[in-house]
């Protein structure tokens, strides 16, 4: 399998996914009993105004025609206008996406930095107290309602201890750093504004922990399973017979090989974090796509919901593509089969 083949296969899948996602969301959006034209027009609009809007948006056309028009827009990067904010959906997403990505990446960092050592310890001391402890932590993580955990950490670190803020991305009294990457922590450093950086860091800690905790369990379980698999391989026995210490056997032999299958899970985790942020952002008033989409769903603002879904699905496919390529780069067995 060559790199080109992988890319081609993923891109084919991307087209399929985009088609599917738009069909599904479009169908759902037409299931709702409400009339979008009336929603846009407002309660006091005359029937003529509503009719005009309907014609403007092409809502008087048959559904397949409407769908094709929507698809045509999507291909050109036009997701239509949000009913709620009345701005182009793409513009809204562009504003909110970096905040979500920053949160998701921080959460992923947290989940990996803790999840890998926990998974390794769990596998090395299988069926020992450490293993039981890690497995309970992992299952708890997967079983924790993130929205509830968020409230608890707010109660503790904001309410009781007063150490961290309860929501938002940055102290409102501070000036926002110039937008370069859209990541506040990076932008504030670029601007040399340490105060803003500190504030951004403080603001991201609780939501990133909350979001990451759930995936901590996913990562720890995956690493544990992969490590157990590797540790029972014959080459581990050879390494021991060659006199490698237990420490070296675990960290230079088993772990690198165990990380190969784990890359997939980390990739999937990033995808999940992107839309898993939906609930966490709501709790922490984090101004990202998640909070945006929750508000849009509650307002039955389907152009916005469809835009969000398409963008996240796109990110999903691209992450998968990246995972495939990383896979090929690190595993000689796959690379050489071309």
């Amino acid at each position: 399998m060559s790199f080109l083949n992988v890319i081609r296969r993923r891109l084919m899948f991307l087209i399929l996914v985009l088609f599917g996602v738009t069909v599904i969301t479009f169908t759902i959006s037409n299931l709702i009993p409400g009339d979008p034209a009336r929603m846009i027009a407002g309660d006091r609009a005359t029937p003529e105004i509503v009719q005009n809007i309907r014609e403007d948006l092409g809502l008087d056309k048959p559904l397949p025609v409407q769908y094709l028009r929507y698809l045509e827009g999507v291909v050109q990067g036009d997701f239509g206008n949000s009913i709620r904010t009345r701005r182009p959906v793409l513009e809204d997403l562009r504003i909110f996406f970096p905040a979500t990505l920053e949160l998701a990446l921080t959460a992923l960092f947290f989940a990996t930095a803790l999840g890998i050592p926990l998974g390794v310890a769990s596998a090395v001391w299988k069926d020992k107290p450490v293993d039981h402890f890690v497995r309970v932590i992992a299952v708890t993580g997967i079983s924790t309602p993130a929205f509830w955990l968020g409230l608890l950490v707010i109660l503790l670190f904001y309410g009781n201890l007063g150490w961290l803020p309860s929501g938002g991305r940055i102290d409102p009294s501070l000036e926002m750093p110039t937008r370069v990457t859209g990541f506040l922590m990076i932008d504030s450093l670029l601007a040399g504004d340490l105060q803003a950086f500190g504030s951004a860091l403080k603001h991201i800690l609780l939501p990133a922990f909350t979001l990451g905790f759930v995936h901590l369990g996913v990562v720890a379980r995956q690493v544990r399973a992969a490590m157990l698999e590797e540790l029972q391989q014959d080459y581990i026995r050879t390494a021991k017979a060659n006199g490698l210490s237990r420490f070296k056997v675990v960290f230079t032999e088993a772990l690198p090989n165990a990380m190969i299958p784990s890359i997939t899970v980390l990739g999937l985790a990033l995808g999940d974090l992107l839309y898993g942020a939906v609930l966490t952002e709501t709790v922490f008033a984090w101004p990202g796509m998640g909070a945006y989409v929750v508000n849009s769903i509650q307002a039955l603002d389907f152009p916005a919901v469809m835009g969000f879904t398409v963008v996240v699905s796109l990110a999903y496919v691209l992450i998968n593509l990246a995972v495939d390529l990383i896979y090929m780069a690190v595993d000689p067995r796959i690379r050489e089969v071309s």
């Binding site: 899948f13 399929l16 996914v17 599917g20 996602v21 599904i24 969301t25 759902i28 959006s29 299931l31 709702i32 995808g271 992107l274 839309y275 898993g276 939906v278 989409v293 929750v294 769903i297 509650q298 039955l300 389907f302 919901v305 969000f308 879904t309 996240v312 699905s313 999903y316 496919v317």
Partner: peptide, 14 residues
């Protein structure tokens, strides 16, 4: 391939 949480939310809302 569609993010399931969002799909569920959209369906439930609809």
């Amino acid at each position: 391939s569609v993010p399931s949480l969002v799909l569920i939310m959209a369906l439930a809302a609809a």
